[in-house]
């Protein structure tokens, strides 16, 4: 996982598209910085200029990734407006793009935004599901019973779910439950949001009764987005995928457990999927196969974990 997460699957694909369209500049939004880093990598590889919009709050919280992007030759633009986080970075990238589209491609990092972005990103990320299918058939000789992935915008989940949509496989998306849904401090748009329209898509959003988008919280920066990809909204409504939420605390416990039992530091985002898998496994038959999408490495999260646990 060069770049530390699944994001590179999408950035390489879209950077190729940008080159094909004759664009010489990429812009991107980033929350934690994972997508910004992946875009910077793709830009460096293909000789495209890169400007990354990042909420000023996130720039402060994610110094390492800001530095990584700079090393890779990208320009990081702090966004001072609104809540100074991911959604504001998207707003700012859109503002840039309306005046720069002639030479610039907006490389959106998740299965969100106006059509056809949700399908473009899904298709590039579906390499995850295609590979999972191939490997599980080799190892187990049959499809898994359950696939679990975390959902912020939802790109890693769409990527692994998509090739299994028509199979008899239970699919579960795990959202950031933050400090608990009942506290209001979470980022579980599908579990606790309402239908709305933002960033060119009809989907589920965390919003007040006037349709104002509200602040979100998750210990995992990559889940900290008030909306979710529209295809997830659809999969929820037709009942094909179950969406659940896991709290910061549960995710942290899963983070430590995987680190200590298998020697793998998972990203805090992916630790949400893992936490749900650990609980679910207790209820299932012993011979059930569960696949967890470990979509990112946890190195980036050590600062956050350090503040939360005493070791």
């Amino acid at each position: 996982m060069h770049g530390g997460a699944h994001k590179i699957n999408n950035t390489i694909g879209q950077a190729l598209l940008a080159k094909f369209m004759g664009k010489d500049r990429l812009i991107a939004e980033t929350g934690a910085g994972q997508h910004g880093v992946a875009t910077a990598i793709a830009g460096a590889l293909m000789g495209l200029r890169v400007d990354v919009y990042m909420g000023a709050e996130d720039v402060k919280r994610q110094k390492m990734n800001v530095f990584r992007m700079k090393i890779l030759g990208a320009n990081v633009i702090p966004v001072e407006s609104g809540t100074k986080t991911l959604k504001d970075a998207i707003n700012e990238a859109l503002r840039d793009w309306v005046s720069s589209f002639e030479n610039t491609h907006y490389l959106i990092g998740s299965v969100v935004g106006p059509h056809p972005y949700p399908t473009i990103v899904r298709d590039f990320q579906s390499v995850i599901g295609i590979e999972t299918r191939k490997q599980i058939l080799e190892v187990e000789g049959c499809l898994p019973d359950v696939i679990i992935a975390c959902v912020g915008g939802g790109s890693n989940a769409m990527g692994i779910f998509h090739p299994f949509i028509n199979d008899e496989v239970r699919l579960i998306g795990v959202e950031g439950g933050g400090k608990g849904i009942e506290t209001g401090k979470h980022s579980a748009s599908l579990c606790a949001g309402k239908k709305g329209i933002l960033h060119g898509m009809l989907s589920y959003f965390l919003q007040d009764e006037d349709g104002q988008i509200v602040d979100t919280h998750s210990i995992a920066p990559g889940l900290d987005y008030p909306g979710v990809g529209p295809e997830h909204a659809w999969l929820k409504e037709i009942g094909r995928v179950e969406y659940v939420a896991v709290t910061d605390e549960q995710a942290l416990r899963a983070f430590l457990e995987l680190s200590r039992t298998e020697g793998i530091l998972p990203a805090l985002e992916s630790a949400h999927a893992l936490a749900y898998a650990i609980d679910l496994a207790k209820e299932l038959d012993r011979d059930c196969t569960i696949v967890v999408n470990l979509s990112g490495r946890g190195d980036k999260d050590l600062d956050i974990v350090m503040k939360e646990v005493n070791i």
Partner: peptide, 20 residues
């Protein structure tokens, strides 16, 4: 006023936030 006035530049954007 809207929390995310994407089509607006800095001046009107700030005005939305002041109103909210």
């Amino acid at each position: 006023p809207f929390s995310d006035p994407m089509a607006d530049g800095r001046t009107i954007e700030k005005s939305h936030h002041r109103a909210l």
